[in-house]
Amino acid sequence: MTIFDFFRPTRSAPVARDRLQILLQHERVSAGASDLIAVLREEILEVISRHVEIPAEKVQVKMQRDEAISTLEVEIELPNPIRRRAA
């Protein structure tokens, strides 16, 4: 690369291709997150159900992503009194 390369006009096709690749990667990550949350929710529900009777709608799993950190929030509403599952 020389100093004269900075003064040449850039073609729009390579720039558009790069932008499309970034957009596709972002969509893949976003789509994969919802699948991951569904799998995590089912696995958490399965583990809890081994010990406590709990309806499926009482387990909520949420994921938030920022640039620096991702947060996984699991909210489980337990019955009062807790009814243990028969072994």
Rank of each mutant, 00 (worst) to 15 (best):
H51M: 15
R41E: 01
Q25L: 11
A33E: 14
L36C: 08
I48Y: 05
A31F: 07
E27L: 12
L36P: 07
A31Y: 02
E42A: 09
E42I: 02
L24P: 00
Q25N: 03
V39Q: 02
Q25V: 02
L45V: 01
S30V: 07
H26T: 04
S49C: 08
Q25C: 11
E27G: 08
A31K: 11
I44V: 06
E27K: 05
L36R: 04
E42K: 09
I44L: 04
R50C: 13
A38W: 03
S34C: 06
R50Y: 08
H51T: 15
S49I: 02
L24H: 02
Q25W: 04
E27F: 12
V29F: 15
L24A: 03
I48T: 10
S34G: 09
E42M: 07
A33H: 11
A31E: 11
I48N: 02
A33V: 13
S34D: 08
Q25M: 07
H26R: 11
L24V: 06
A33I: 12
A38Q: 04
S30F: 10
R41M: 01
I37W: 00
L45E: 04
V47I: 12
I37F: 08
G32H: 00
E46N: 09
V39T: 03
D35R: 01
S34V: 13
V39N: 05
A31C: 07
R41V: 00
E43I: 01
H26S: 12
D35K: 06
E43F: 01
I22K: 14
A33W: 09
A33Q: 15
D35L: 07
I44F: 10
E27N: 08
R41K: 07
A33L: 12
